[in-house]
Design a protein around this nucleic acid. Structure first.
Lengths: 225, 225
DNA sequence: GTGCAAACTTGCACGTAGTGTAATCATGTG
DNA sequence: CACATGATTACACTACGTGCAAGTTTGCAC
């Protein structure tokens, strides 16, 4: 039951000094990494550069992230984590695809996509980010899988592992596809019109899933039973 | 370039000595890497070990692969390349999902899955392979995308980039899901019954896609010992 | 064959990644 | 204040990945 937090990490206010320092350091690292990415481009700066800019030692950097990629991919993680957050807010009785649609549509928000959009534009045709980025999406897939498994535990056919795995993977793929198409069309454009198009794409991609990729489906027909 | 105009890459017999040597070296590297993986386990051997076992220098290893992961992931690449090969053999008039089903079903073959199954079992709970493996699947996704785009170029709605991207990604996700479920159920089991179950899972996962993950779809009797 | 050019391999050197370790410093607790 | 715990740091070390300048093999023309 998502109403009562069953997970252990739901501590809302432990503002101990240590936690605050750690969060601040983490933020300083990602900020420094992003700034260096802006200034020098992907692959043209080292961990030492980041640590130096963040005011920490090289060793400390590795206490927080395993690589420069991982530090930058934390942006993607943050974005996808909000997606999971949105997904968990949906009522458990709602069909999975509709929940996914709603959660994804909520992401077409300037505050959520802005960091991701910049990261994408800065690392566009560079495979340097590909590793950690694919990892981030896969991590999100695992989260969606967990939510779906939880929801479908009692429904007919919901015990089928294949169903849940395939569903979670397909949802992620469709979300990814929508983001990809949006970036290729609009680039770093964050205007209201562009975000509307993103929302449209996200909804439409899940709708394609729901209709089984029917070949003659007209776009923007988000009809579902 | 001796004879052919070489506009296309479909040269079936250029057995020049150089090409043969390169192929042999490449094979020696992957064989050595796999052997070391069997002997020492993931992460417990270096590039120098592989090069030494393959009878080449460390530097030459890096002329073929960018990392040990990449060398091992060539097995996954080989497997997925045969999948693409199967997919391209299907008639262009066939619906995409049916082609995918047929291509995937053809993969439930001992000769094709044996190397992959061993690799999976050897790197089961090790994230060391995750990077290159995810990359391999994504590369396959791009290939499926290319095939799908080519096929749907003239069909109604086929010009929609979103449709093609989402379709290709979902197909890959479903194939991946089927493989994952199969491994979790049967492990390195390559008996006829196990392969039949794999084929069943692959077909069923694509069928789920085709029906839009309809919740009332009758689950198959996959498990029958 | 001989000679040449292109491709491949190799050794070397260099910078960087990533990790173990022990000392030092900051923070929470009695 | 004293003490325990956790975080940062410096140091050292192995391994990765690459540029470079040789040396070696192959292809091709003469």
């Amino acid at each position: 039951m998502p109403t009562t937090p069953a997970s252990s990490d739901d501590q809302q206010a432990p503002p101990s000094r240590r936690e605050l320092n750690k969060a601040a350091t983490r933020q300083a690292i990602t900020d420094a990494a992003l700034e260096l990415l802006r200034a020098k481009g992907p692959g043209n700066f080292t961990v030492e550069d980041i640590a130096d800019a963040a005011g920490i030692s090289r060793r400390t950097f590795f206490n927080y992230f395993g690589s420069t990629d991982a530090a930058l991919a934390s942006i993607v993680h943050g974005f996808l984590d909000t997606a999971i957050q949105q997904l968990r807010l949906r009522p458990a009785s709602e069909p999975m695809l509709e929940s996914a649609q709603a959660a994804l549509a909520a992401l077409a928000d300037p505050k959520a996509v802005a960091p991701l959009a910049e990261l994408f534009t800065l690392t566009q045709q560079s495979p340097l980010m590909a590793h950690s980025e694919l990892e981030a999406w896969d991590h999100c897939r695992a989260q969606v899988f967990a939510v779906a498994r939880e929801r479908l535990a009692g429904t007919p056919g919901g015990q089928d592992e294949l169903y849940v795995h395939a569903l979670a993977g397909s949802i992620i793929s469709c979300g990814k596809a929508a983001m990809e198409v949006w970036f290729s069309r609009r680039g770093p454009d964050l205007t209201a019109g562009s975000l509307t198009e993103l929302r449209q794409l996200l909804i439409e991609s899940i709708a394609l899933l729901g209709t089984g990729f029917a070949p003659s489906a007209s776009p923007s027909a988000t009809r579902s039973s």
